[in-house]
């Protein structure tokens, strides 16, 4: 026991607790298995330890120890690769895949969470040593709030309005409102689609948003989230029964055609509204104009 023992315990405990707080299993269904959780909790513990140890090292003028943080950065980049590979492998067995853009977003989130743990442990230990335990407690609270803010991105309801719309056939063409979705030739399939299908129109709230919702990865994320939550009326070998999203080229609206097992329009609207806006899909063409102006 020395003067660093309690600050180190505090830093590691708060950092690991933050990782547990951020490791929530939700409708995205990952990670649901125990071993996956153990991997992330272990890496969170290591990240917390690295962030904590940096402060006593600096105080003891052991500046080279801080270079371990760069080692941590490369390790956590490996975490991103691990997540990307795992999710890509799993995606090929999904009836409605996540898509690469969604997977990349999740992988980046897993990496960045470890950096948040390092930062939190660093700040908590610093406050403990520089001020006192109460200051460390306050710093921990602030870090939890900041982390939860940083980890909650915007949702689709922030950028589009979601409205339920009727499905209709004109000949063999399936339409959501006036947006053409696909050609379904067999009357039997058309009946199934009208019975089980639902349509939604997503109208962009601003010009910049048009490019974001036009992104194919963002569209796939919408279909995946709805299918995971409400189920999907399809099986392998029935490619005609596939949820799809198409775009109205005139005004940038998108027509969402889904085939849920539970036909609940209110719930489906809620789910579409809360689909995360993927970081990789965000484009801001209006920023370009502002700079030129």
């Amino acid at each position: 026991m020395n003067e660093y023992t309690y600050p180190i315990i505090a830093g590691i405990t708060v950092g690991t607790a933050l990782r547990v707080f951020m490791l929530r299993t939700d409708y995205r269904q990952y990670p649901t298995y125990l071993h996956g959780k153990i991997i992330h909790l272990s890496l969170g513990f290591i990240a917390a330890a690295l962030g904590t140890i940096a402060i006593p090292s600096i105080m003891e003028k052991e500046f080279t120890a801080v270079t371990f943080l760069t080692l941590a950065a490369s390790q956590f980049r490996e975490v991103r690769n691990m997540e990307r590979n795992t999710l890509t492998e799993m995606d090929s067995y999904e009836l409605v895949p996540r898509g690469n853009t969604y997977i990349e977003g999740i992988a980046v989130a897993f990496e960045s969470r470890n950096y948040l743990v390092i930062f939190t442990s660093f700040v908590v230990t610093l406050c403990y040593l520089a001020i006192n335990g109460w200051a460390a407690l306050g710093a921990a609270f602030v870090c939890f709030v900041i982390s939860s803010l940083l980890m909650s991105g915007s949702k689709l309801s922030d950028i589009v309005t979601v409205e339920l719309s009727e499905l209709s056939f004109k000949g063999a063409g399936l339409y959501v409102d006036n947006i053409y979705i696909m050609n379904i030739g067999l009357p039997e399939r058309q009946d199934e689609i009208l019975k089980y299908g639902m349509g939604f129109i997503l109208t962009p709230k601003s010009f910049s948003v048009r490019s974001t919702i036009a992104n194919l990865g963002q569209r796939q994320a919408i279909l995946h989230d709805v299918s995971v939550t409400l189920g999907v009326f399809r099986d392998s070998g029935t490619p005609a029964l596939v949820p799809l999203i198409k775009r109205d080229l005139n005004d940038g609206r998108i027509g969402v055609f889904i085939l849920p097992q539970e036909k609940d329009p209110v719930r489906a609207k809620e789910i579409i509204s809360s689909v995360p806006v993927l970081e990789n899909a965000i484009q801001m063409p209006s920023r370009k104009r502002n700079r030129e102006g």
């Binding site: 000949g171 063999a172 696909m182 050609n183 379904i184 030739g185 067999l186 009357p187 039997e188 399939r189 392998s236 070998g237 029935t238 490619p239 005609a240």
Partner: peptide, 17 residues
């Protein structure tokens, strides 16, 4: 229609009219 429905399932394709 019957032939198209069978072929759709066998070939894992979509029948378009």
């Amino acid at each position: 229609e019957a032939v198209a429905a069978n072929l759709e399932a066998i070939l894992d394709g979509i029948a378009h009219a």
